[in-house]
């Protein structure tokens, strides 16, 4: 131990010292539960008793053959198709607007975060009432002769859930884009203007490419989020209609806390985490560019 310490320079020791609290935190909060979760994935355990039975890979095999796993997978892809483009378009639009103003910018920027810090159960109940058959949204729409079955149509229920999640993350993603926009030197726009580039050309040739780090971060966040959607469908639709809003985490929750099969829930979670990681890896390969 002393020889290792001797090899390290004093500034390295300071560095390791500084990250030590985080390492300890990670070991307690992340690594230990992860290892424990992996260990129970190979067991049959009803979560409220002390008896655990080792059953090998049986849970993993069952998950792969579970039709609801594949339904949740299909629903997650549908969620992504609606959520990612919509959240990126709207949050970029908000960021561009915020970037143009100086008066009360911080007020608006932090104001958009209210949805992000709101309690999921509370706003899910509010949205459920607003979007119900005789809710305020349909009352407005009925004025122009339209009624939308937001949560009762199997075809659009997941899209409705995605809209609510977009609302929640709009402010957060906007701030990431705003930070990216403000890190782009204005001199680049000035040079482009002198070269005769119009606003649209500047947007597509300068802004979008230089926002690549922000796009990459938001893509990664959005994909991870898509695999973790829970509160909104759990509270509003319960996974219906016709399982059209079943998500991975709802299934994990159902098997662990309702069906009392924590081992199965844990193996489900491990498989979902692996798929989520693969998606993130793949998207980074496609989206991430070096803009230095």
């Amino acid at each position: 131990m002393n020889s290792i310490l001797a090899k390290l320079k004093s500034n390295e020791l300071v560095g390791y010292g500084l990250i030590l609290p985080y390492l300890i935190y990670s070991l307690i909060i992340w690594v230990y539960p992860l290892m424990w979760g992996i260990s129970i994935a190979f067991k049959r355990w009803n979560i409220i008793s002390t008896e655990k039975t080792f059953i090998g890979l049986s849970n993993f095999i069952q998950v792969i053959h579970d039709p609801l796993f594949w339904i949740a997978f299909k629903n997650t892809l549908y969620f992504m198709v609606v959520f990612i483009p919509l959240s990126i378009f709207l949050s970029l639009s908000v960021a561009l607007l915020l970037n143009r103003i100086t008066f009360l910018r911080s007020f608006f920027a932090s104001g958009y975060l209210i949805s992000y810090v709101s309690a999921g159960v509370a706003y899910s109940i509010v949205f459920n009432l607003m979007f119900s058959g005789n809710g305020i949204i349909n009352t407005w729409l009925s004025g122009i002769g339209i009624t939308i079955p937001w949560f009762s149509s199997p075809k659009i229920a997941m899209a409705s859930i995605a809209i609510i999640v977009v609302w929640k993350f709009l402010g957060y993603y906007s701030l990431i884009f705003l930070a990216g926009l403000q890190s782009i030197p204005k001199t680049i726009y000035e040079s482009a203007e002198i070269d005769g580039a119009g606003r649209i050309t500047q947007f597509f040739r300068i802004t979008i490419p230089l926002l690549n780090p922000s796009f990459t971060i938001i893509f990664i966040f959005a994909i991870m989020l898509s695999f973790n959607v829970f509160t909104e469908p759990y509270m509003i639709t319960g996974g219906g209609p016709l399982d059209s809003t079943q998500t991975f985490v709802m299934q994990i929750y159902y098997h662990t806390f309702t069906n009392l099969h924590a081992g199965y829930g844990s193996s489900f979670a491990i498989i979902v985490a692996a798929i989520s990681f693969a998606f993130v890896f793949f998207i980074r390969k496609i989206v991430e560019k070096d803009i230095a």
Binding site: L98, R105, A109, G111, A179, G180
Partner: peptide, 12 residues
């Protein structure tokens, strides 16, 4: 660039 939007409001 990454700290600027996080104003006093947000910190509050």
């Amino acid at each position: 660039p990454f700290t600027s939007p996080f104003s006093n409001h947000l910190r509050s």
